[in-house]
Nucleic acid binder design. Structure first.
Lengths: 220, 220
DNA sequence: GATATACTGGACGCTGAAGTCTAGAAATCA
DNA sequence: TGATTTCTAGACTTCAGCGTCCAGTATATC
């Protein structure tokens, strides 16, 4: 029992760069092609690595995919957490936040992977949950907090911050997700995202600005 | 050249009921499981039919899937076309229309099939397009026309009917599609749809009612 | 009744991809 | 240098699912 810490066994150590190359290759392939279309040989070739090396790092295809899904999730989290801009006035701040969110969520990695999540993860519902909570699920609380803050300053009239956040997020997304989801219309440009966010924010503010509620009591 | 009309060849004719059973079985299976998980044996068994009978009606698996996708599209069209209610006041009319749309689009058939469209249809982009235009793509023009009509009556202030229709549709959908898309949260209830549509319509009207535009010129 | 076609059920060939095994080269530790 | 482990390249096994074939039976037209 002397090897409780397998810190450095004798012999050639595993090359972390190869592991990284495998994950990178898998990410590139899994986000472009459906799960069953991606073969382990393709991944190995793309990573400039032998197939056996792939299997020495990952037990099987599902484990590899899981690792990649988690890796994308982590990148989503990191990107979304750094998306707030505290020092701007409300209107500009909302637009900047929205552009940040959508740029991440509509990017090829997230869209590609989320497309095939239901296909590949019928077995592991927990991974789908994790993926969702790393991305879209994390956006709403952030947004709700931002809106609550604005409401407490008297800038907005918010009944339920969580629902209002859903409204704003939905207005930002617009019809993009549906079209992307059906595989139509190639990658979305930064300009499309910006104009969509700008419009959505304007509509949202028209509905939630304080003066609206003095004028339109019939739609409460 | 006497058989230009192959109206009734000699011998036993094909049983249309069996064809229908195959399509029904395929619809049930394809909307619940991803394309590659559904085997021809499963379909045959579910339809109480021999596998050879399946192949006598459909050349291969893709042809069968295509037939089913088109069939679902046709049902979507039929359901969506009959969703307008001309005789109601605007607010109730919008809500009734929204509930009609969402009940169709969030139903298990459409959601299940649209999930796997990108997976199964990498080859035939035209089928994905057809599917989209039968469902979500058809909703927006209908909605835009409805909003234009209301605007011409002075009920709404609409800058671009198509964009406004996207806004309203997005508000109706809310976060449902994202959650459903990730395979979370089982089938949506009629109550959830109704309350979501009601809220979305209220927010929309607050943003687009004529009086808003007199009060909030800064968000044009 | 004769004939032609549809349907059944099972066996079968084929393919493609997952995953295993092996021999030898390469890299690292002692 | 020697021991030990990784990495490679490719051959190999396994297996599931598509699509086919066939012998027998059922059901239609002529």
């Amino acid at each position: 029992m002397s090897c409780l810490l397998p810190r450095s066994r004798a012999g050639r150590p595993k090359d972390p760069a190869k592991r990284g190359a495998i994950v990178a290759a898998g990410m590139q392939l899994f986000t472009k092609h459906p799960f069953d279309m991606v073969t382990m040989e393709m991944i190995a070739t793309q990573a400039s690595v032998s197939k056996m090396t792939v299997y020495s790092h990952f037990a099987d295809k599902e484990t590899l995919f899981e690792t990649i899904a988690i890796s994308v999730s982590d990148r989503m989290i990191a990107a979304i957490v750094n998306t707030d801009h505290h020092d701007m006035p409300l209107y500009e701040r909302l637009i900047a936040t929205g552009i940040g969110f959508l740029t991440i969520l509509m990017g090829p990695d997230v869209m590609g992977l989320s497309q095939m999540l239901p296909t590949a993860l019928r077995s592991s519902h927990s991974l789908a949950l994790r993926f969702y909570e790393a991305g879209p699920g994390r956006v709403k609380p952030v947004l709700a907090a931002l809106l609550s803050e604005a409401a407490s300053k008297g800038l907005l009239h918010i009944d339920d911050a969580h629902l209002a956040a859903e409204d704003l997020f939905a207005l930002w997304e617009g019809g993009m997700r549906a079209e992307l989801g059906c595989g139509l219309s190639g990658p979305i440009t930064a300009e499309q995202i910006a104009s969509r966010v700008k419009r959505g924010t304007q509509v949202f503010l028209r509905a939630y600005a304080v003066s609206v509620h003095r004028e339109n009591p019939q739609f409460q």
